[in-house]
């Protein structure tokens, strides 16, 4: 691969609406690494909630417009979410396979779309990112990033390289937190029970901060911790790495 100088950033709808500062942290981080960052106008939602809810037609419509917006430029696409990345990388090509106008572009987009930590470690080949932090952190491995993309080692390695941070193990770190998109409102009883088990594990870990690479799980866990009155915070990996040394 020729040297990458420019990237496109798809912050995702959740970062856009709920955590704009995380989006800026991603921009800062990438710019600090010498990359030119572009955020294409008009990006909204990748369509995963529609797809997983069984609304394939609606999902395909959102997939098509996202493909349109991200194939104007052929720079790599960075997404600070394993779940949305998995949607673009694995589901778009399937969803649009029979669409003559989009099938090839969807495959092409899939081949240059990366989750943030995956991009930093596997594509750029970074071992550490210059950043500073304090306290004890634990990493929660979100499902789609972990099982769809193999993201776990990368964020853990990057966290281990942050000055002043101590990473502690989290038991059942790879077990789902119970979010599951619409699942959390369709099946609140099950979802709530799964969340409680996750929160128990978090509180037992001794971490003061939980780091996620998916804001969806992050907001779910944070909402649960807040309800419990816990002092444990939840942050996105970009929030940690974006903090300059």
């Amino acid at each position: 691969m020729s040297r990458i100088t420019r990237v496109q950033l798809f912050v995702t709808c959740l970062v856009d609406a709920f955590a704009p500062r995380t989006g800026l942290a991603v921009v800062d981080l990438l710019e600090r690494l010498g990359l030119e960052v572009e955020c294409p106008d008009g990006l909204t939602c990748c369509g995963q909630p529609q797809l997983n809810g069984g609304f394939a037609m609606e999902a395909a419509a959102l997939a098509r417009r996202t493909v349109d917006l991200l194939t104007v430029d052929d720079a790599p696409v960075i997404v600070p979410s394993g779940s949305c990345t998995d949607m673009i990388v694995h589901q778009y090509p399937r969803l649009l396979a029979d669409d003559a106008r989009y099938a090839e572009r969807a495959r092409q987009l899939a081949s240059r779309c990366y989750e943030l930590s995956q991009f930093l470690v596997d594509v750029l080949g970074l071992e550490v990112v210059d950043a500073r932090g304090t306290g004890h952190v634990a990493y929660h491995a979100s499902c789609h990033g972990l099982r769809g993309l193999g993201v776990r080692r990368q964020p853990e390695q990057l966290l281990d390289g942050v000055d002043g941070l101590t990473r502690v193990p989290l038991s059942e770190a790879d077990v789902c937190c119970g979010f599951g998109g619409l699942f959390a409102v369709k099946m609140p009883g099950v979802s709530g029970a799964m969340l409680q088990r996750k929160l128990d594990a978090i509180e037992a870990s001794g971490a003061d901060t939980i780091v996620v690479t998916d804001l969806s799980c992050g907001l779910h866990i944070a909402g649960g911790l807040r309800r419990r009155g816990s002092r444990v915070r939840v942050v996105h990996l970009a929030d940690v790495l974006g903090a300059e040394p």
């Binding site: 856009d16 609406a17 704009p20 800026l24 955020c39 959390a184 409102v185 609140p188 979802s191 409680q196």
Partner: peptide, 30 residues
């Protein structure tokens, strides 16, 4: 954060708080 929301989001707030959207979204800041 919001602690209690009407149906259908009441399922969510039965077990956890719901985040309020940021005053200005990323798109505006960008």
């Amino acid at each position: 954060w919001m602690a209690r929301l009407p149906w259908p989001l009441s399922g969510w707030t039965a077990h956890r708080d719901f985040p309020a959207p940021a005053r200005r979204p990323f798109s505006a800041l960008w």
